[in-house]
């Protein structure tokens, strides 16, 4: 056999330069924030000519309110991010949200709970959050033990949990208004509403979880290349289970934050929340296939959607058009993402 002299062969190995790589990453991660800036500018300028109200769009109070309103879907979307990074999906969060809300409000009407006075509140919160975690655990356990795809499992539990919601109180709304709770929910600390603090707090904790802990890094690895993770001895099942419990907990937390203030839950509440949450996550750039994404970018996605809602209202567009615009923007983002990623690569015409 003839030996090939290595130094005479031009090796085709060529790595991207770090600078080019970093620039690409910056674009990918900064895109959602750039989009938010564009929205702000657009609605401010357009608002000057079209606004139905006299107030400026970029009004500080207005922005704070926007953050508060983003919280219910936002908290769920943050949880959805780690589920999707892990390579799964959860379609049952809307139903979990409703069931946790019912547990929260109903438990406070139980005689022995009422006897406790205001100290029933943390107990009611605890019960609601436990409910969410238990439902998440059911999803996680099913995905883990049966090996059925999370899409199917949670599609099923979306129906099943909703059934439980109805079984609880029929088609009647469940109501209980506790003024201490309302005060808490409406309180503001350093200018921000309670709900906003929860949203930001959850974002911070999940960011730390996903970037700093072994669980978070393993969750990325599992979503990125499940077989490799299994071969490396990572216990895929428990990690997925923990993430499902976290999103269940967060769906319940979202309910706790929202219903403490509103005090009444309809059995249909929370429907389509899963779809809004997924929309926010995808706008933030998290990959559906798993292994790539960022909690912070999802926060951006959530704010971008809420800005769009408010902004369209501000310039006097029908509320109906909001759905249309968000849907089309989602598709446009997908299209742009693909075009950017494809640039420079020579693909097959398939």
């Amino acid at each position: 056999m003839t030996d090939v002299t290595p130094d005479k062969i031009v090796s085709p190995v060529k790595e991207d330069t770090p600078v080019a790589l970093q620039r690409r990453k910056l674009i990918a991660q900064g895109a959602i924030w750039a989009f938010i800036v564009v929205e702000l500018i657009f609605f401010s300028v357009a608002g000057e000519y079209l606004s139905v109200s006299d107030k400026a769009f970029m009004d500080f109070e207005n922005m704070l309110l926007l953050l508060k309103q983003s919280a219910p879907i936002g908290i769920i979307a943050l949880g959805m991010t780690i589920i999707m990074i892990n390579g799964n999906i959860d379609l049952s969060v809307g139903a979990t949200y409703a069931l946790a809300a019912i547990v929260l409000l109903d438990s406070m009407t139980w005689p022995w709970m009422q006897a406790l006075g205001d100290s029933a509140i943390p107990l009611a919160w605890g019960l609601a959050l436990l409910t969410g975690m238990a439902l998440g655990a059911i999803n996680g356990l099913l995905v883990w033990k049966t090996g059925v795809d999370a899409f199917i499992v949670t599609l099923g539990s979306m129906l099943g949990f909703r059934g439980l919601v109805f079984m609880y109180n029929g088609e009647q709304p469940t109501s209980h208004l506790n003024w201490t709770l309302v005060d808490f929910a409406e309180a503001r600390f350093l200018g921000l509403h309670t709900a906003t603090w929860f949203l930001l707090g959850v974002a911070l904790l999940l960011w730390l979880l996903m970037t700093r802990t072994v669980h978070g890094r393993n969750a990325y690895a599992i979503g990125n290349n499940r077989e490799a993770a299994v071969n490396a001895g990572i216990r895929v099942g428990p990690h997925m289970m923990i993430n499902f419990m976290i999103i269940g907990f967060l769906a319940a937390l979202s309910a706790v934050v929202f219903y403490s203030e509103s005090g009444s839950v309809n059995p249909n509440d929370g429907m389509l929340f899963e779809l809004w949450a997924i929309t926010a996550v995808v706008l933030g750039g998290t990959k559906l296939t798993g292994g790539y994404g960022s909690v912070v970018a999802t926060l951006g996605g959530v704010i971008a959607i809420q800005l769009l809602r408010k902004g369209l209202g501000h310039i006097g567009a029908d509320t109906q058009t909001v759905n249309l615009v968000i849907g089309l923007i989602l598709i446009a983002v997908l299209f742009l993402d693909r075009q950017l990623n494809r640039k420079g690569k020579q693909e097959l015409r398939t």
Partner: peptide, 11 residues
């Protein structure tokens, strides 16, 4: 795409 269209067609 169909998630986006769900929303868009509703609008």
């Amino acid at each position: 795409v169909t998630l986006g269209m769900l929303s868009a067609i509703h609008g």
